[in-house]
Design a protein around this nucleic acid. Structure first.
Length: 225
DNA sequence: TTCCAGGCAATAC
DNA sequence: GTATTGCATGGA
């Protein structure tokens, strides 16, 4: 028996605890949901217990764009950028690529790092168009300029529905606080820890990461346990 | 005003 | 291999 059998319980236990606290989160938020496709179905683009989303290529693309825009930035800022792009009908690769540099950077300005992110969005848009509906693998995404491990995993888990675990600053913070990790482990080490201790289930992975974010936001600014 | 937010790439050691 | 720095806005 491996020595991490107790950790397995711990990882399940933390999930159960967070789920009991916050309930299903319904990630990833989709800007267009409330406004057009399903009025009244959700709050701020969340869609609890609906694991069929994203349901359209445009929604898949929107999540990927959001994953890029949220790099090192508060989600509320990203929402502004996404709404601007949505208003320009540019949450689809061909339309985004057709935007002039000034229009694109003006639209995403609230999300910060707008020069870099404009370049990232363009490069990703071309890549996405080339996929033609195919699901990319992780290595492929990581070779793209501007796509690192967290962005790649977020896209895979929430846009492409591949059960791969997303690690972010919140994940590291919550696990460190719990004493489950020291905090200095690498991205891949932490990712592996979740994946080896949990069944590889899409809804579970999606909810778990979303719950960690919710919990970490809740704890922000409060003293440790 | 200062600090930091759901990263990433480039550069320095 | 690990540490540091630039990228930029906006809210607390």
């Amino acid at each position: 028996m491996r020595s991490n059998s107790s950790k397995s319980g711990t990882f399940h236990g933390l999930y159960a605890e967070l789920f009991a606290l916050y309930g299903p989160r319904g990630w990833w938020p989709l800007i267009g949901l409330a406004e057009e496709s399903r009025p009244g179905c959700c709050i701020r683009g969340y869609h609890p217990l609906d694991y069929e989303l994203p349901a359209t290529p445009a929604q898949v693309f929107e999540i990927c764009a959001g994953a890029i825009l949220t790099q090192s930035v508060n989600w509320t800022s990203v929402e502004k950028a996404l709404r601007s792009l949505h208003a320009l009908n540019a949450l689809q690769p061909a339309r985004l690529l057709a935007l002039g540099d000034d229009v694109l950077t003006a639209a995403i300005r609230p999300a910060g790092y707008f020069n870099q992110k404009a370049k990232k969005l363009r490069l990703f848009s071309a890549f996405f168009a080339g996929l033609d509906g195919r699901i990319p693998d992780r290595q492929e995404l990581l070779t793209l300029w501007g796509i690192g491990p967290e962005t790649a995993d977020s896209m895979l888990l929430y846009a492409f529905k591949v059960p791969t675990f997303v690690v972010d600053a919140y994940t590291r913070r919550v696990l460190t606080r719990r004493g489950l990790i020291r905090g200095s482990e690498s991205y891949d080490d932490i990712k592996r820890l979740f994946e080896e201790n949990l069944p590889r289930d899409l809804a579970l992975f999606q909810e778990y990461h979303a719950l960690i974010v919710e919990h970490a936001r809740e704890l922000r600014g409060k003293p440790g346990e």
